[in-house]
Amino acid sequence: MVDQNLSVPKYWRKIPQYYRLTAVKCRKCGRVYFPPRAVCECGSREFDEYELPRRGKLIEYTVLRSVTSDFEKQRPLAFGIADLGGVRVFGQLVDCPNPDKLGEGAEVEVVFRRVKEDSDYGIIYYGFKLRPVKGCW
């Protein structure tokens, strides 16, 4: 048996969020939540799906050098928080060898990337990442 260390259902059910940043928008007050929530701050439980825009501004970032076992061969990992149409999203920051060269509020685009994989035989997890449009090298 090939040992499966990464769960398939745990990934599969979040595909709308991982692939397309599918948030929820409250039908009553219009608040947008990513990740989705069951109850809005206004008390409403009725939401519509809402895809976040794929362009936004970088708020802050860091470069993690001490990574977890799943990411050993991908280190270092840069992470950023981006404002996508007023919603703050956390994600990996890619294609940016020198993020310290980025200006404040640098423009980022949402890209589709591999996140991690279960050895050479198991599932590949895909998901969104953040990529500075220009300026980090």
Partner: peptide
């Protein structure tokens, strides 16, 4: 786990 650790984040980040 679904939205932060999934992407490789740890508390120190």
């Amino acid at each position: 786990s679904d939205y932060e650790a999934y992407f490789g984040a740890t508390p120190v980040a």
